[in-house]
Design a protein around this nucleic acid. Structure first.
Lengths: 217, 217
DNA sequence: ACGTGTGAACCGATTCACAGCA
DNA sequence: TGCTGTGAATCGGTTCACACGT
């Protein structure tokens, strides 16, 4: 197989492979910034808790990106992974809920630096609606339907209270959202064609506490 | 095996089991609030994307908590899972970095409602030090060593920029922190006896985008 | 010689079917 | 009868050793 082919991968891979690609990409961007041109699978995985064969296998699902005996071109590989992930094009994101967390995400550099941009913001608090925050005017949540379809936005971040999260998810899906990044600590019920990722801090924290506690203090 | 036994589990289980326990617990708390007394493995997993045998097997690593032919007592099972996770006792947490995200976490109800309390806060910004935020006085990051050992705090949340995160992690570990909840988008290098959990929003988002993109818009 | 790419072997987690008990 | 608890079977992801190409 000489030709890179994103559409039909040789074998099926786990979703973890995709998550790891995202980590590799972050690492590559850091290396690029430090002026590194070539990197081996050994070097790039050294500080990632990932084995180098794992790295090579992850990439192998999508093509051949390295030179045998040499390594990988940092810049080229970064671009290839961006292409695989689909983040070489710009993705518009809607944010619902401008409380503490929502406001923080609006300012979060990790998103805006690249091709993931929060372009519309909703809230249900009359005191916030029409105010401008981080350069974006906060809209009434009831406008979500028309705004999302007009702007063709498919990704929605939910930063509302757990009590309201399901209702917001339902509204977003009715407005044709296809992907939800959920920050509320609840399990959302969605149709099979909608993707949900949960950012679940208390779950992470409790898992951490389990291991800490088990280790004896 | 009639006797519940947390110390020697029958077989080894995956860390995913622990993460799921945290989800079960959240669910049980919700059921309790709605006045539900008894729940079956089928019911509790219905909206969790987890199979009911998975639920039963997860619990089986730690004991027998249900009644055959009946189900599980909601309140009792919640208490048992809290005991397993170790969150039946109070855990003090230090937060480093009171930017947008840090401030949001200070107010986040998901932590403070239960036994996970942010009790000390650090920053390196002279303009913030000694100010009070959400009822907690912000301390100089250079005081982390003495404060953590004095108050015997083992859990540190890192909410600083990716450039500073490793340095903060090093300081925290020197101050005897044993668990790090890392919100900075970098991979931290830590000794083997320190537990790290990453809350990685851009990674989640990019994984979401991959599947969205692959599905065709 | 060196590091990538990958099929095959391995290992561990999930699933399943049913035994066990209320 | 109904639902739990679990050993055995299955499935899938990771690891490994080595062939391949430069």
């Amino acid at each position: 197989m000489k030709k890179t082919n994103y559409t039909k991968s040789k074998k099926s891979f786990s979703p973890e492979t995709i998550r790891r690609l995202s980590l590799y990409l972050r690492n590559l961007r850091g290396l690029k910034q430090r002026g590194v041109k070539i990197v081996s699978s050994e070097e790039i995985t050294r500080f990632l808790n990932i084995s180098s064969p794992q790295f090579r296998k992850d990439l192998s699902y999508f093509g051949e990106f390295g030179k045998r005996g040499v390594g990988y071109e940092v810049d080229k590989l970064a671009q290839e992974i961006e292409k695989i992930l689909g983040i070489n094009k710009e993705w518009k994101i809607a944010l619902v809920g401008v409380g503490g967390l929502g406001s923080a995400l609006l300012k979060f550099p990790g998103f805006s630096k690249f091709n993931e941009k929060i372009t519309v913001v909703f809230d249900n608090d009359a005191g916030k609606i029409n105010k401008v925050k981080s350069g974006i005017k906060i809209q009434d949540i009831n406008e979500i339907q028309q705004t999302l379809s007009k702007k063709n936005i498919k990704i929605v971040m939910i930063c509302v209270s757990p009590e309201n999260a399901q209702e917001i998810a339902d509204k977003a899906i009715k407005a044709n959202a296809r992907a939800i990044l959920n920050f509320a600590p609840v399990s959302l019920k969605v149709p099979k064609n909608v993707y949900v990722a949960n950012v679940d801090m208390s779950c992470e924290l409790e898992t951490l506490i389990y291991f800490l506690n088990k280790s004896g203090i």
